[in-house]
Design a protein around this nucleic acid. Structure first.
Length: 608
RNA sequence: GCGAGCGUAGCACAAUGGAUAGUGUAGUAGCCUCCGAAGCUAUUGAUCUGGGUUCGAUUCCCAGCGCUCGCACCA
């Protein structure tokens, strides 16, 4: 069991970062101390609670007691009696309903927590225990060369970036890898198109546009004429065999593509440690074929090299094709080689691959194969997570695809977002100079697009509409950015001309007024303070599930609590103690909102 | 045909097996001499159908209906 990460503050009361996790451990200890029958089997199931009941609730007593024909309330009473004095000092503990144990943080505990976790550094050191010592390879974005990025690509990029930041914040060594599709069958078509259909002047004016046209034209031609399809396949085989002409073409096409991708990544503040495309694994495939064959996992079938999984109802007959009958490699071959490389070279103990949910079968087959292969050879087996997300659909309810007409280009989407945001900023804050309004529009527009994707559970599909993705009201980026800007505004009013936002100061000593702060008192103060203390639980939930929408929901609720607090209680008042405690709440709300938004990949503003 | 995912107010979404199913938007009624109204307060309105497991089911299991996707050389 992980050690509770306590830290003490000026009040002397030690308070842990992840309160729920700590309570869970405390209850297990209490079960043993109380001499409960079969105490080792007792799982307290502490989770954040509905504020009407408390801050945290333990649900595990019910199941434990019922299974043993005990009275749940009696068991709960035994547990409470066995709690250490510090727990009773920090919480109001009560039993409710059929046997829930409710924990309500006392105001003094809230104050201690807020004073202890007072900077990004301290939040991070608290969170870093969650994944300390882990090493994640996160494979995301991974577009295909020679196609422009369109709205269908945005989910993987935005969710992937957020997951990387979250895991790193929680202590994992994260390796970001963009597994570019630079070696597949599309290259056969592309090279064939380049050789036979090229328009040189178009290539000079807008190379990426022309490449995309060539691909589409070649794809269409090969669908009509099987001879062209064969010719395209032959070009791919030639390329994969190392033909110098095709290789030179391949380099040229990649360079054009990669420049366009980088521009979008820069706009979205997405970065990679590596961009090892499928081509990188070309010389590592023979080993895969050999080892899988030796291990008795791969067999020849209809001229191709395939893996069946006899124990699986479907994959006993649905093959995992690891080498095509024409000898060329495919997605499966490179993914197997990639899996091994990430373990051998990057020493990954966890691998997360983000793709849309349509690829579920592929990755299930991949993982089944890899497990058997690694076991046979004695390679260390990493944890593997196929992080899926739903498709972005067009108005017709069908997935937006390159092939089906005109998907909206990401470039155009981002430009439109900024333009709409600029119009709004200009309307709301005409007094701000234009250059700054442009900058604000950038943060708001790009933030809105990205937040719209993150705020929704990644599993579900959604229909793309401009108005939805560029909405500026409700659970959206602008609402959150607005709350941040308002808090900055309070501190500006307090200390005109101050350059440093309060959240960046590392220690309490930099902010002498905080030492005057007393425990939260009013309903609005308490509600806000409680929400703030729930941040660690949200981080944990978000990272264990790899679902950023949990963090979005939390931040939205936090911003809502702040807005209510802001209307209900005046911050800049004459009474120094009241003022200090409200300013403390403002400073911590700002800290957690900004930290959370940055983890999601959003840029925050001081005014808008 | 086989398999996977998804069905929650008019629309768009949330609910890590827990207590009275939350929010946005649209609608209705209010709030700017007062730290920023991109805001706040109040209010109307929903779990596809039928079984099962459980102390407890939107959540897990089974069946049906509906939508989407995948299933031999695309990635």
């Amino acid at each position: 069991m992980r050690e509770p990460r306590g830290a003490s503050c000026s009040t002397g009361m030690p308070v842990s970062f992840a309160i729920a996790e700590d309570l869970n451990a405390t209850l297990i200890a209490a079960a043993i101390a109380a001499g409960l029958a079969d105490a080792a089997a007792f799982a307290p199931e502490v989770r954040t609670a509905d504020p009407r009941h408390g801050d945290f609730q333990a649900n595990g007593v019910l199941g434990y007691a019922k299974a043993r024909k005990l009275n749940p309330r009696a068991v709960a009473e035994q547990l409470i009696a066995a709690l250490p004095p510090t727990t009773r000092e920090q919480f109001d503990v009560s039993i409710a309903g059929p046997g829930f144990i409710n924990f309500k943080l006392k105001p003094a505990t809230l104050l201690a927590w807020l004073k202890t976790y007072d900077s990004v550094e301290h939040l991070k050191s608290g969170a870093s225990g969650f994944y300390q010592g882990h090493r994640h390879v996160v494979d995301f974005s991974s577009p295909n060369t020679a196609k422009q990025l369109h709205v269908g690509h945005i989910r993987g990029m935005v969710i992937g970036e957020a997951i990387c930041r979250l895991l790193a914040f929680c202590g994992s060594a994260v390796i970001r890898d963009n597994h570019i599709g630079d070696w597949g069958t599309q290259f056969g078509k592309l090279i064939w198109g380049f050789k036979n259909l090229r328009n040189d002047s178009a290539l000079a004016t807008d190379p990426l546009e022309e490449l995309e046209r060539l691909y589409k034209a070649a794809d269409a031609a090969s669908k009509e004429n099987p001879a062209i399809l064969d010719a395209a396949r032959a070009e791919l085989v030639t390329l994969q065999a190392g033909d110098p002409d095709n290789l030179a073409l391949w380099h040229k096409i990649n360079a054009i593509s990669s420049g366009a991708f980088s521009e979008i990544y820069r706009q979205l503040d997405i970065r990679f440690d590596h961009q090892l495309g499928e081509s990188f694994y070309n010389d590592k495939l023979q080993r895969v074929y050999d080892e899988l064959r030796e291990a008795g996992l791969a067999e020849d079938s209809q001229g191709a090299l395939v893996v069946f999984h006899p124990e699986h109802p479907r994959f006993k007959t649905q093959p995992f094709i690891i080498r095509k009958s024409d000898g060329a490699s495919n997605y499966a071959s490179t993914d197997l080689a990639t899996m091994l490389y990430r373990v051998e070279h990057f020493k990954a103990d966890a691998i997360a691959i983000l793709t849309d949910t349509r690829q579920t079968d592929h990755f299930e087959q991949l993982w089944l194969t890899a497990q058997k292969w690694f076991a046979k050879k004695g390679y260390p087996l990493p944890r593997f997570e196929h992080v899926t997300f739903g498709s972005i659909l067009g108005e017709d309810g069908k997935a937006i695809k390159t092939r089906s007409g005109d998907p909206i280009k990401l470039k155009a989407l981002l430009a439109e977002a900024e333009e709409r945001a600029f119009a709004l900023v200009t309307e709301k804050s005409p007094e701000i100079p234009e250059a700054e309004r442009r900058d604000i529009a950038n943060a708001v527009g790009i933030g809105a697009v990205r937040y719209a994707d993150l705020a929704q559970n990644r599993s579900s599909d959604y229909v793309f509409t401009w108005d939805k993705i560029l909405s500026f009201e409700g659970n959206t980026a602008p609402y959150l950015l607005y709350a941040v800007a308002r808090i900055h505004s309070i501190f500006r009013k307090l200390a005109p001309g101050a350059q440093t936002p309060p959240s960046s100061s590392a220690t309490v000593s930099d902010r002498p007024s905080e030492s005057l702060a007393t425990a939260p008192e009013t309903d609005a103060e308490l509600a806000l303070a409680r929400k703030l203390a729930g941040f660690p639980s949200t981080l944990q939930l978000t990272t264990t599930q790899l679902r950023p929408h949990f963090l979005c929901t939390y931040l939205y609720e936090l911003a809502g609590e702040f807005s209510s607090f802001y209307v209900a209680e005046k911050v800049i008042v004459d009474d120094p103690a009241v003022r200090a405690r409200r300013l403390l709440l403002c400073a911590r709300t700002l800290l957690i909102l900004e930290t959370g938004l940055h983890l999601l990949g959003l840029r925050t503003l001081t005014r808008m």
